[in-house]
Amino acid sequence: MATTGILLCGVGGQGTVTFSNILTKGLMDLGYDVKMSEIHGMAQRGGAVTTQVRYGEKVYSPSLGFGQADIIISFEKCEAVRNIAYLREGGIVITDTCELNGLPILQGTAEYPHGILDELEKTVPNVMVVEANKVAADLGNVVVANIVLLGAMVKAMHLEAADWTGIIESSVPPKTIDLNKAAFNAGYAM
């Protein structure tokens, strides 16, 4: 039974929840069965977070195993590498260039691996680097970086048929609709 797996990863507070809410509505709009799994709790205190989305004609398990993600969307570049085991052969990675320091780095017991994306690109053929934070900041607010990534993902996964504009309109605060639409379009154009 063919299902498609999407893994979102980032750091608590980066907007993965809004991303996955819009994403699942779009997948429902396309007529798919959808399941999504995210673990709350301790993770919201600056810890690593992942959300797993699966869609297809019929989905059973809400979670993904190693080698089962068709695409990884990473909001922070270390997190893409941390979760790379989930990517299937030939799968796509879309990652922001954002760098956030975790506890060991703040404590001085580890250093941020600034060159980690080079290593990722050496190993994984389909890596798309998106400067979502920068694009969002240029549009007026970094908080829509997640929607920039959503636009890039919709293009990469050929999911254009859903009414993304309508779903964004009904999912974000009214004042930010134009900003979010612009962010989606900017991501899609990449």
């Binding site: 997190e79 590498v81 506890l103 691996p113």
Partner: peptide, 20 residues
């Protein structure tokens, strides 16, 4: 066993939850 396909060289520091 469902194996992982890709392995990336280099360590990624852990990211445990912390005080805000």
């Amino acid at each position: 066993k469902d194996p992982s396909v890709y392995e990336v060289a280099g360590d990624v520091p852990s990211r445990p939850p912390m005080l805000c």
